[in-house]
Structure formats: structure tokens, C-alpha cells
């Protein structure tokens, strides 16, 4: 089973990295989402997966059952999912904004930040500064 888990994570991370290498902003965001999921699976598997009962203290009991699952990786995974969700939402909003104001999602054509203060800029070109 371990091999299956490892291959699953490898597939996620591999696909994610491949997408990250793209020059298209949306593909990069999809790649990031895949990578995040790969990392989340890794946390989940490093916490140990087995036939265990959920880590909820039963009615009347004082402590977790002996065969209860480890609650910590679940908390970590939940946190990571929430953070991944927020960052993906932000990245999508940013990409949309970039498309609307720059007119492209190809990072090769995004040169505005470079142009602001490029060393080889001729002096006559008006340099747009922030206000």
C-alpha cells in the first residue's frame, strides 16, 4: 500500500511541477493547487493511515479509545486546506485582475514591473511612478 500512496503523491507533485513550469498564469495556479494537494496527502500519509476509529471521545468516556486515529494530521490537513483555499482564491483574483489590466496571462509579455526603472531605459521615455 505504501507504494501506492507514494506513487499518488509523486503523481500529484509531478503534475503540479510540470504545470508550474508553464508560462501561462492560469496553468501555474492549477499547478500550485495540485502541488498543495500533493503536500496535503503527504501530511495525511505521514500521520499514518489504518483501520482506526475516528478521534472523537465517545459519550461518557474521558479519553480517546486506544485504537483512535491520530487527530493531529487531520488538524494539520484541515489548516493546510483552508490556507490553500485562501491562497488559490487570492491567486485567481490576482490573475483575473492581471488579465483585465495587462491584457495577457502570458508571463513573458508581462514586463510592466521591469519597465518601471529598467537600467537600459532611454532617458526620454516617461517613467510612470506611483503617486
Amino acid at each position: 500500500m505504501t507504494l501506492v500512496y507514494a506513487l499518488t503523491i509523486a503523481a500529484y507533485v509531478g503534475c503540479g511541477l510540470y504545470m508550474m513550469l508553464s508560462r501561462h498564469a492560469v496553468r501555474m495556479i492549477l499547478g500550485l493547487a495540485l502541488l498543495t494537494n500533493g503536500a496535503i496527502f503527504l501530511i495525511f500519509f505521514s500521520g499514518g493511515i489504518g483501520a482506526t476509529t475516528p478521534p472523537v471521545i465517545p459519550q461518557g468516556a474521558e479519553a480517546l479509545a486506544a485504537d483512535a486515529a491520530n487527530a493531529l494530521p487531520q488538524a494539520l490537513v484541515l489548516t493546510a486546506i483552508v490556507i490553500g483555499f485562501a491562497l488559490t482564491a487570492f491567486a485567481i483574483a490576482l490573475a483575473l485582475k492581471a488579465y483585465r489590466s495587462l491584457g495577457t496571462l502570458d508571463v513573458r509579455e508581462m514586463q510592466d514591473a521591469e519597465r518601471l526603472g529598467a537600467p537600459d531605459l532611454p532617458l526620454s521615455t516617461p517613467v510612470k511612478n506611483h503617486g
Binding site: L32, L35, T36, A39, L94, L102, V107, D112, A113, H130
Partner: peptide, 26 residues
């Protein structure tokens, strides 16, 4: 500041640093 240069810069910042935090998580 919602200018073209700022959005361009933020996108590049985001790409590299998001990748970095995922490495951290792994």
C-alpha cells in the same frame, strides 16, 4: 496601488513564494 506594474510584480512575487510555502509544507 492598483497599477499595471504593481499587479505584474505581485503575480511574480506570488508565483515564487507560493511555491516556497508548499516546499515548506512538504
Amino acid at each position: 496601488q492598483r497599477g499595471r506594474a504593481q499587479i505584474d510584480g505581485a503575480l511574480k512575487y506570488a508565483a515564487m513564494n507560493l511555491f516556497g510555502t508548499i516546499l515548506f509544507l512538504i
